[in-house]
């Protein structure tokens, strides 16, 4: 159910530590972008999860369609040589 005067939905992305990329953590409602950042701070970072927050209005995201899954992704599935899985990564490298 949506109300006519409901605040828009925002998708929230949090960067957990320096050097990592922002990760989608969920969504929330807010009146504008600044409000969304403040809400995200309270909803998603109170256990010290983040060093940076991105928010984007959900309506502004263009997503791929599930029905296009075949043509979009299948051609890559049987080309195992594209996957760098045949290498041993030294432990000192850390997260890749």
């Amino acid at each position: 159910m949506t109300h006519e005067n409901e605040w828009p939905l925002w998708e929230v992305f949090i960067r957990g530590q320096h050097g990592m990329s922002h990760r989608h953590v969920g969504s929330l409602h807010a009146a504008d972008a600044e409000h969304a950042i403040r809400n995200a701070r309270d909803v998603y970072t109170r256990r010290n999860e983040g060093v940076s927050i991105w928010v984007v209005e959900a309506a502004k995201i263009t997503a791929s369609s599930p029905s296009d899954k075949g043509p979009l992704f299948d051609p890559a599935r049987d080309k195992v040589y594209r996957h760098p899985t045949f290498y041993d990564i030294p432990e000192e490298v850390g997260k890749m």
Binding site: W7, H29, N39
Partner: peptide, 8 residues
């Protein structure tokens, strides 16, 4: 009034 404010 709303969940986000409740948490805040």
């Amino acid at each position: 009034p709303i969940l986000e404010e409740d948490i805040a």
